[in-house]
Each structure stands twice: as C-alpha cells, then as structure tokens.
Amino acid sequence: MSQKLSVTVTVNGTEYTKEVEPRMLLSDFLRHELGLTGTHVGCEHGVCGACTIMFDGESARSCLTFAVQADGHEITTVEGLAPDKDNLHPLQQAFWEAHGLQCGYCTPGILMSMIPFLKQNPNPTEDEIRHALSGNLCRCTGYQHIVDAVKLAAEKMK
C-alpha cells in the first residue's frame, strides 16, 4: 500500500507542500522531509516529550500526530523561536544563562512546552513550573537548573 497524500503546512511561518504516506509521523516529517532536526525524537510513544512542538499554538507531541493531520495547520518548532541568527529567544537565553541543559537532547521539547505555559502563567511558582515540566523527561540535569532557567525566563519575559 503506497497511498500518498499532499500536505500543506505552515512551519515557523513558512508554507511547505509535500507528498507523504499517511503513516508518516509529524516528527519524522519535520526532521526528514523539511530538514528541521531541532525537533528531537526520543521514545516515539508520547512519554518523553523530546518531540514536543506547537500545533496551532498549543504544545503537542509530534510523534503522536500524523503529518497528514497537520494539513492546513500551523506548526512551530524550536527553530522558530529565535528572532534572528544572532539573538536567542528570552527563554533560550535563560536556559543558556542558568545552565538549563547538559546534553541538550530534551531541551527543544522543554522549550516548546514552556512557551505556552509561560504565556498562560507569566508568574509561575516553583511548584507550578515543576508540574508543567512533568511531561518532559531529562536524564542529565536533575531538573534543578531547568526550573531555575524557567524562573529566569519568566523574569525576562515580563
């Protein structure tokens, strides 16, 4: 079976049209079809959060969505955060300054979870930050510096 469907999707403000098999995951579409390898793939069953992107402005697992489902929708990936190549988004800057990453594998997913979180809750408590981070696994940091980075980002983004 090799049904191919046309998908037109806006990713980080740029419109792309591709022909894909319906079984292609959105995570693989972003990485292999569009070359946007900032979205990482960890568990591929929705547990680790590494592949988190924004689907119409709301955080979602790109490994639990088929690319064909994104037809006509807007996706934001980590590549869409920085305003230009010399400047980081304040959230990225905060992760840099507060050492919010070690190996960095989980970081894009965490950033894409924290953008809508901070928008909804611009003054989060530490408990709220930890709760909001619970859908993203990090195997390096022990989370403390990630929590610090999110706190710092909240300050910066005020």
Partner: peptide, 11 residues
C-alpha cells in the same frame, strides 16, 4: 518505531 501502512480518510 513506525506504524504499519494504512489507508487514510479525513471526512
């Protein structure tokens, strides 16, 4: 891990 092929409909 990739899903097996399927026929897709989006009514």
């Amino acid at each position: 891990m990739k899903p097996a092929p399927f026929e897709y409909h989006a009514p």
